[in-house]
Amino acid sequence: MQTILKADNIVKYFYQPEPFEVLKGVSFEAKKGEFLSVVGKSGCGKSTLLYILSTMDTDYQGNLQMNNETLTGLSQNALSRFRNEHMGFVFQFHYLLPEFTALKNVMLPALKLGKYSPKEVEERAYEKLNWMGMGDYALKRASRLSGGQQQRVAIARALVNDPAIIMGDEPTGNLDQTNTGIIFDIFMKLAKENGQTIIAVTHDKDFAAASDRIIEMSDGVIVN
């Protein structure tokens, strides 16, 4: 199968409060249509790695490629456009824009991309919200939703542009068993039917076990 994302010897330091090597040369590959789980103890560097893979963090050593195209060293604006089109991201703390409705939150990245008309964007946003069981809350302000509801809206937002890669930092962290199951099934379906690649950090053993491949991290290196 075709390699879509390739990280080569990624090294990351934090300098505050004192110099500290968080990632000590991480290399790995993700294939098209693969559903990966990243596991490891709290503080071992999973989120840090994910921010680098998602191109938001550019302050690292090593090399990052997608579809054989080097992403390391591109300008912030180029990376913004790249994320908009090719990457969906669910943050560890489900960040939504509080003044906007759930629907608008999902629509914004798609409106920015401009591939579809606003009307189509709205339909697609509704579709994603319905997958998450959030269709009834579409017109509610994001600040009025519960934590789990916000997380599901955030997942819908990550999916709206049909990105090649979807990354989640504990995307089901706030959810009950049933909803976790629903989202797992959607992820699996997207990977198998659409060939989208899923990389999800998780502490949920069952979730990880059911995915295609588990990457285990410990103290800034991949151990398995």
């Binding site: 912030q76 604006n77 913004s80 994320r83 991201f89 960040y95 990245p109 920015k112």
Partner: peptide
């Protein structure tokens, strides 16, 4: 600041 970070993370450029 949070909103700006989200907008940028989801694809908005500096100019936007």
């Amino acid at each position: 600041l949070k909103d700006i970070a989200i907008l940028k993370a989801t694809g908005f450029e500096s100019g936007n």
